[in-house]
Design a protein around this nucleic acid. Structure first.
Ligand SMILES: [Mn+2]
Ligand SMILES: [Mn+2]
Ligand SMILES: [Mn+2]
Ligand SMILES: [Mn+2]
Lengths: 218, 218
DNA sequence: ATATTTTGTTAGATCATCCTAACATTATAG
DNA sequence: CTATAATGTTAGGATGATCTAACAAAATAT
């Protein structure tokens, strides 16, 4: 049995593990807002449960079992977000906090029903992929908007998971998933971009452009 | 802040407190499946928080604050059950267990949205009253089916909250809220009743009849 | 190559929730 | 009105999840 606290550690490990699949204690500690000694001792416990590979002073890695369990929590989180937006009419900026709690509900029937009512969606309201029941991801390789060139037209497909403030900022500018954006210019000085979409134009800071994931040639 | 465990104690206290409003440690312990010494120490904690009146060897009573907090948990529980049945298509026998977990979600926006989507229902799928946002109940005085006389026709309005086995038993016999039941006869021997409803007739044990709440002259 | 900084671990404590064993009080039955 | 049974409390301990202070190892800078 995996506790609520353990589920949050697994999820954070999964989300922080990049390509290399390695996470530092410091990073994980910051992500969770939990002090390092607490993280270390939890890592030892998760290692006993065969969910994490742990060796002193080495980076943390999830085992296959750990990855699967993490993916199942992420599945519950993202299905919840999708359900809250699609079936309950909440805004994409309001659902993450609620999902952070609902993801720990144990009843699989509850989430299976959400899945069914949603028509088995493969992406959540922020454009992230929803793992299947076996914890398998269908990950689409997006590009960051900030890595695109002047003149390109791209489709906004996902936002890097973030605060409700960021999502409200986007909503205020009518920036939402699916829109086509044309890169009009890039300020070499600070990396901010002038973007055209719909019938408008906005200057977006580099910080913003790093969090917008797009598909080229779409 | 009221913890998940505390919420469960408050809810159990509220549900066990009859007219007299008093609950024994033994009863509460049995209801929650938690040993008596644990209950005693939790009562001391809830007393410090002004949620319960506690004196050694005296029956337990909720304070007004305790009643309100309990009612708010019950509100979340019953709204959830209603939502699961009405908006998600689950059976009335499947929702209690899920609601037992969902009731601890802290987001009020989540439950307010359910309430709104349901059109501000006043009863849950088992016929129990849903408290309002201030924890106020509109309690309708039901009669137990077993207290009705031969020849009476009554409307089934609620079932005393119970196991999914009981609810499946009722469903298997097409017994659901709203049906009219006519008491054909009562077996003096064991109190079982022969009941006519729809176009059928069933003999229901006293145990069953004690759990069916009806309205007379409806 | 050493000194300093950053990162991670150990030791020891707290708090919440639960338990069992032993004891105390209250209620009930002869 | 005692003896017994039922009910409730105290004492002491376990586990899970967290913390701070002190120490150790690894990385970095001079
Ligand atoms: Mn989220
Ligand atoms: Mn969470
Ligand atoms: Mn219920
Ligand atoms: Mn509960």
């Amino acid at each position: 049995m995996i506790s609520l606290a353990e589920e949050n550690y697994l999820k954070a490990l999964f989300n922080l593990a990049g390509q290399r699949g390695e996470v530092n204690v410091t990073e994980l500690s910051k992500q969770l807002g939990i002090k390092m000694p607490t993280v270390t001792s939890m890592m030892k416990k998760l290692a006993e449960k065969k969910l994490v590979y742990y060796e002193s002073y080495k980076p943390l890695r999830l085992t296959e079992k750990g990855k699967k369990e993490a993916a199942l929590v992420i599945r519950k989180h993202r299905l919840t977000e999708m359900f809250l937006v699609e079936k309950m009419g909440l805004g994409w900026e309001d659902v993450h906090e609620i999902a952070e709690e609902v993801e720990h509900i144990r009843s699989t029937a509850f989430f299976d029903k959400m899945d069914e009512l949603l028509g088995f969606p493969r992406i959540d309201p922020h454009g992230s992929s929803i793992p299947d029941k076996n914890g398998k991801f269908a990950s689409i390789p997006y590009d960051k908007l900030c890595d695109c060139r002047v003149g390109e037209t791209v489709k906004l497909s996902a936002v890097i998971h973030s605060s409700s403030e960021f999502l409200k900022f986007l909503t205020n500018r009518a920036i939402r998933l699916g829109i086509r954006m044309k890169i009009r210019s890039v300020e070499p000085f600070d990396g901010s971009m002038v973007i055209g979409y719909d019938n408008r134009q906005e200057t977006l800071s580099r910080t913003v452009c790093e969090r917008l994931l797009v598909e080229k040639g779409k």
